[in-house]
Design a protein around this nucleic acid. Structure first.
Length: 425
RNA sequence: GGAGGGGUGGCGGAGCCUGGUUGAACGCACCGGUCUUGAAAACCGGCAUACCUUUACGGGUAUCGUGGGUUCGAAUCCCACCCCCUCCGCCA
């Protein structure tokens, strides 16, 4: 959510941002401004009426105390009139406030100046590449076949027990999951992140705070009876951890890492995109979240990105970094990088991390603030998050890239202490 | 799930029965000042958040878990919900 004051002061910039992100033609901005003007007029009227009503009530109190009954009765009659007016005004104000709030929720974040303008994924900028895709002297086997061959995962029984996209991992397959989770968490803690274990279900306020509600409820599994949602990412509980809080100036920055399973309905997916581990309804991820002062957020974005990339290098996975263009980066981000690893047998890039600076967009919705030492006034902070990293596609790339002619799979050195062996099969 | 008690400002804690200058006593913490060589102590002053309005100084409105109700007037009375504590039950 943008600051209404910011929209008032920079209407053109917001209009442009909407066009660049491919969200409407910017006329929404004029609707917001019109509703906001109406709102302020109503507030002025309401408050004026309340002022008079309060004065009357105080007057009546004095008269009653002094025993001037008749005068009090007259004042009460007059005050009752005001009350009726007030009720009408308050109702109008409530409606227009709701309208402003609803409109504000539809205004996307403004892209940072360094973000390339573009419409489609083709306009994203490949900002960096690392590693060289391996040359095979045999036919590389896709990871779903490798999983099967080594009995690492069981998709069919997952489908029986739960449904498509909920595999069982077993034996070394399960062990590999645990190794990666521990590796990612240890690396984060070593880099100064505080480890969090978070609830896997959240209430509607939290889902709204990070922006899953109102638009994206279809992505979440819902426990209707209790009004709770299964988390689509640890970002939701971990960012909401500090909803409605005011930090002291010395408490920032805060950096959290959290491992959680993630649950996504992924309605409408099909084909090669969902084959094997490419897209699941339940998957594991270590998420990194930063709470920082506004002036520090772009440095934090680079730090976060660098940490995530260091994991890929330690795992010896060829990867590339995309700087997402305005049209492909989504509603809430001001700037976003994607990290993609090379999947040797599929011969395609797989997204394994998405790293974003939301600036104040999320924090304003959640009213997360800090007390700036200069002014002493509460100020909205900036939030960032990024995957560090998401497991299934990492597993897919590890298996495909490290397969040997004899069918075995080499485990990268960094992972061996965690996995307890240097190869599968 | 059942019975009882409770949710007040950064913290502690009055006020609620008996509705009326109570946005809220008092204490602690914090900030500024006086004093002091310096510090402590003492004393004086300040110290919630959001919104509306104002060039500014300032003025106003709302908020005592949340939402609704009664009333001219609600932290205070009534209803619903949420959360916490104690006891009982159940359970990994």
């Amino acid at each position: 959510m943008l600051d209404i004051q910011f929209i008032r002061d920079h209407a053109d910039r917001v209009r442009t941002a909407m066009q660049q992100k491919g969200i409407g033609d910017g006329s929404l901005v004029d609707q917001v401004l019109a509703a906001d003007t109406e709102r302020r007029e109503l507030i002025a009227q309401t408050q004026d009426t309340q002022t008079r009503s309060n004065a009357a009530a105080r007057e009546i109190g004095t008269l009653m105390k002094e025993g001037r009954k008749e005068e009090a009765q007259a004042a009460i009659a007059e005050s009752s009139q005001l009350k009726a007016t007030l009720k009408e005004l308050e109702e109008k104000e409530r409606l227009v406030q709701e309208k402003v709030d609803a409109l504000l929720l539809e205004v996307p974040n403004v892209p940072h100046d360094s973000v390339p303008v573009g419409r489609t994924p083709a306009d994203n900028v490949v900002a960096f590449e690392w590693g060289t895709p391996r040359e095979f002297d045999f036919e590389a086997v896709p990871h779903w076949d490798l999983l099967d061959r080594h009995d690492l995962a069981d998709f069919d029984r997952g489908s029986k027990v739960t449904g498509a996209g909920f595999p069982f991992y077993r034996g070394p397959g399960a062990r590999l999951q645990r190794a990666l989770i521990n590796f990612f968490l240890d690396e984060a803690v070593q880099a100064g992140y505080v480890e969090i274990q978070a609830p896997l279900v959240v209430n509607a306020d939290s889902a709204r705070g990070t922006g899953q509600l109102p638009d994206k409820e279809d992505m979440m599994y819902e426990a209707k009876k209790d009004g709770l949602y299964l988390i689509p990412t640890a970002e939701v509980p971990v960012t909401n951890l500090h909803r409605d809080e005011i930090f002291g100036a010395d408490q920032l920055p805060i950096r959290y890492c959290a491992y959680t399973p993630c649950f996504r309905r992924e309605a409408g997916s099909y084909g090669k995109d969902v084959r094997g581990l490419n897209r699941l309804h339940q998957f594991d991820k270590v998420e990194l979240v930063h709470f920082v002062r506004p002036e520090d957020s772009y440095q934090a974005l680079e730090d976060l990105r660098e940490h995530a990339e260091s994991l890929l290098r330690k795992l010896e996975l060829p990867y590339r970094r995309l700087l997402m263009c305005t049209g492909d980066m989504g509603f809430t981000q001001a700037k976003k990088y994607d990290l993609e690893v090379w999947s040797a047998a599929q011969a395609r890039w797989l997204e394994v991390s998405s790293i974003s600076n939301f600036e104040s967009f999320q924090a304003r919705r959640m009213m997360i603030r800090y007390r700036a030492e200069q002014t002493g006034k509460p100020q909205i902070i900036h939030t960032l998050n990024g995957s560090g990293l998401a497991l299934p596609r990492i597993v897919a790339a590890l298996l495909e890239n490290n397969q040997q002619a004899d069918g075995s799979i080499t485990v990268p050195a960094a992972l061996r202490p965690y996995f307890g062996s240097d190869a599968i099969g």
